[in-house]
Structure formats: structure tokens, C-alpha cells
Amino acid sequence: MNQRHSISMTVNGEAITMDVPVRMNLVDFLRNELGLTGSHVGCEHGVCGACTLKIDGEMVRGCLMLAVQADGCTITTIEGFADDPRSDRLQAAFERNNALQCGYCTPGMLASALDYIEAGGSTDRTAIRQHISGNYCRCTGYQSIVDAIAQTIEEGQKS
């Protein structure tokens, strides 16, 4: 339980080397050791999607991985997505559509939405709804989020 391990990774473009307990979740590591509190902990069993991250190009749940499993990986958290101009249009669409209320699901939702858009996802509402069905939002009822994603894709097609 008390075993520790040294890990190195790139988080939002910064090289990190740290000694961590082997049992520490990746999301707890990012939040508590690196201060990246934008990744939220909602369920700790991979259902709610609030801790969605990008690791080596794949979208993963930060609560279903140990920090030591991310040794050698490249990680992008919401802080990284937010600073990347590729998310500007999506953030503006979320704001315009009020596609967030309490904001707790928002980092994970934004990450999932960005993944859908960058993979060439269509404006089909059913397809968007399917894609974000791993992200729980209690406040909005999802419609405004679907609107924001669809509008971002439409804008991208025009530009």
C-alpha cells in the first residue's frame, strides 16, 4: 500500500517527474500533486466522465487509471485543452448556448466534444448524443450541449 514509484510524463506540454504512491489514481495525482483541478472527480468508477483526459491521443477516464500507468505518457487535461486555440470555437459555442450550468461536468464534456469534432464527427444530433453519452450532466438536459457541438462543426465547415 505504501509502495512508491518514480514516474515521468508530459502534462500539457510540461515535463514532469515525480515520486508517487503506486495506488494513487491518475486523476488524484493530477489534481492533488500537480494542482490541475480542472479534471473533476464525479463517480470514481468510470461512469460519469467528469475526469475525461487525453493520453497519448486516446480519451480516457482519469479515475480508471493509476498515475504509475501513465509513466512515459503525454497527457492533456482541460487546462491544456483550454489553452489550445483549437478549442476556442467550441468554448465560445458552449458559452453562447449556455451549454453548462454548474460547470462540474464541463471539462469532461468539452474534452469529449473536442474529440468528436476533431475526429470529423457530423452534425447529426443522434450521433452527437451517442458520443457524449459517457458524460453525465445533471443540469442542462444536454440539448444546449448538442447545439454547441453541432454549431461548432457547422462553423468549421464554413471556414
Binding site: 480542472g38 482541460i78 487546462e79 468554448q91 458552449f94 449556455n98 453548462l100 460547470g103 464541463t106 468539452l110
Partner: peptide, 12 residues
């Protein structure tokens, strides 16, 4: 508040 929350800058 939206921009702040969208950027993961909320304070819970």
C-alpha cells in the same frame, strides 16, 4: 462565469 468554468478554472 461560463468562460472560467469552461477553462477548468472553477473553484469547488
Amino acid at each position: 462565469d461560463a468562460k472560467r468554468l469552461l477553462q477548468g478554472r472553477g473553484q469547488y
